[in-house]
Amino acid sequence: MLRQTVLVPPPTTTPVDAALVACADGDPTTFGPVYDALAPVAYGTSLGVLRDPDHAAEVTQEVMVEVWQTAARFDPARASARTWVVTLARRRAVDRVRAEQSRRHRDQRDLDTTVAGAPRDVVADDVERRLEGAAVRRCLESLTPTQREAVVEAYYGGRTYREVAERLGAGLPTIKSRIRDGLGRLRDCLGVARG
């Protein structure tokens, strides 16, 4: 298999990282530029998981307030500001999907509806469209079809790998290793390396 390296993001400190570190000093007026740089990251992430603009906006608001509140915990040695915000936003968005699933489960209705709202195939198509031109798209294409399918299914919609396995009709160990190998190959392709 051809190993591509299309993008090398060195883990150095960007101006956004520096602005985020600086706003940990407690001055709310310094947060405007941080919001402008990172809110689109939080919104794009939330929208990718939730597929609903209103839910995504609510999550974005929570995430950006959390970014302000916990700015002192941001460690530029461990992550870029972008990665940090994606991590926070995904966690909140996925938790919202699951809380919603759990509520629906309690309510004994809509049991067969996906919370994310859109059929998965539509989502996957949308993903491919949105990623057009992005380096990650080229790297995605270097995965085997089954790896790509498992990673994309796990990325969108807040599903657990168990649910991905059920959905794809494959065994748990199979899905776990497809996700692991897929992410590992993406990591190499994207040139991500820390430490």
């Binding site: 990251v41 991590t87 390396a193």
Partner: peptide, 15 residues
Amino acid sequence: EYRDVVAAFTVDEAP
């Protein structure tokens, strides 16, 4: 590192 990979999937959207 895995989180950087996951972050690479994010396409920014104007809120």
